[in-house]
Structure formats: structure tokens, C-alpha cells
Design a binder for these strands. Structure first.
Lengths: 109, 109
DNA sequence: CGTGTAAGGAATTCTGACACG
DNA sequence: CGTGTAAGGAATTCTGACACG
């Protein structure tokens, strides 16, 4: 029970709104990216774009941080989680990804 | 089969990204708001914030416009649609709205 | 009616760095 | 290590208006 996509994974939210949504400062959000805890996309000009999934991730990170967990450890746990996924689950998620790719930003036009 | 919310109705997308997502110009998106076809929220400073639902609405509007339908007529159809909803459906949607309000932008803090 | 554009201003975001610790 | 901040610049968004039609 990991997946459920559609809008959840579209990278369309700017960092200011993510800050409001998560209660984290922009500085913190950028830092967690540097520590490889979160992976926003970039607009043509270079502005970060986040998904709702990213927002949820950040909320989880914020909770861990409050407990005193260091970013390094949080990253370890994330990698561990990823490894836990079975092949079929991954395949399933990728399929959904394809389907929802229809909703990605139009590169052309 | 109208509803399905959660992320779909959170107003978190800025107009520039909506423009990319819909293929409409920013000018057009603002104009459709003036014609009451779309209802974005505003950030504290005044910037428009749209939901995925809004984006879908805009795509529908764009299609109608391509067929030569005027904004006035599009609006008529929208109001007609709204009236069609049965009370139970509306109640259902509002409930979901409550549940997902949890995900609205934090006004405080 | 629907959309383009130049105008002027305010807020957003970006990066690299100094700071504290 | 994690986060604040001032710095300078570039891109975003906003509104009201002139334009064409």
C-alpha cells in the first residue's frame, strides 16, 4: 500500500506554497534537497517544482527532525524503504506513472 | 461520477504552471476568471492559486472555445451542470471537502 | 468579445556566502 | 549539522489600459 498517483506525483507546486503547506522555511526545504531527501523538478528558468508526494515527504521529514533524527539517518531509512518494494509493486507504480505522464508539463508548444 | 477529491481541489498551483499545463496564455486564464468560468484562490500577497480541478476545467474551456463557444455560453452550461447535481451528491462532495480541508494552506503560523 | 502587449511595481525564487555551533 | 540572513540579480505575477475587431 505505497502507491496512489495521478495528481499526487505531478511536480507543480512552487517552493513558497510548499513552505506554507509544510510549515518549513524555504531554507529548510532547499537544505533537505541538498541532503537528498527530496527531489523537486525545475522549471525552464530554474525554479523548483514539487508534488503533493513531496509535500507529504517533507512533513514526514519535519516530524523526524523534531524527534532529533539527523538528515543522514532519514536518508538511510528512505533508501531502506525503497529496497523493500517488491518488483511487482515497482512495476505497478511505473505503469501508473506512464498513465499519468499524460499530465506532465507540456514541453513543446 | 463527478467527484473524487483529495489533492484535486487544493489550490496550490501558480498561474505560470497552469499556463504550461493547459497551453493557455496567462492572459486567457485571467480572462476566464473575469468571465466567472474559473475561481482561483489568492495568496496573501494576491497571487492566484489554482487546483488540478481548475486545470481540468480550463482544458474543457479551451476545447469549447476552439469549437467557437463563447464564454457566456460556457458559463451557462456550467451553471446548468451544477443544478443537475442531486442533494446527496452535493452532500457527499462537501463531506470529502471537509476531510480534505486538512490539506488546505495553513493560514496561521 | 477575446486576446495581445508595453508599463510600472511588488513579491518570488535563485545561488553562494558568512554566521553560529 | 542545520538553519538564519543580507546580497544581487533574474523571472513571476499583478493591475489597468490601449489596441483590434
Amino acid at each position: 500500500m505505497t502507491g496512489q498517483l495521478s495528481y499526487k506525483n505531478s511536480k507543480v507546486i512552487t517552493i513558497g506554497i510548499v513552505s506554507e503547506l509544510t510549515g518549513l522555511t524555504i531554507r529548510q526545504i532547499r537544505y533537505y534537497e541538498k541532503r537528498k531527501l527530496i527531489f523537486p523538478e525545475r522549471s525552464e528558468q530554474g525554479n523548483r517544482k514539487y508534488s503533493f508526494n513531496d509535500v507529504e515527504q517533507l512533513i514526514n521529514i519535519a516530524n523526524k527532525r523534531e524527534e532529533g533524527v539527523q538528515t543522514f539517518e532519514i536518508r538511510q531509512d528512505m533508501l531502506k524503504e525503497k529496497r523493500k518494494k517488491s518488483g511487482s509493486q515497482l512495476r505497478d507504480e511505473m505503469l501508473r506513472g506512464q498513465i499519468n505522464a499524460q499530465f506532465g508539463v507540456n514541453k513543446d508548444r
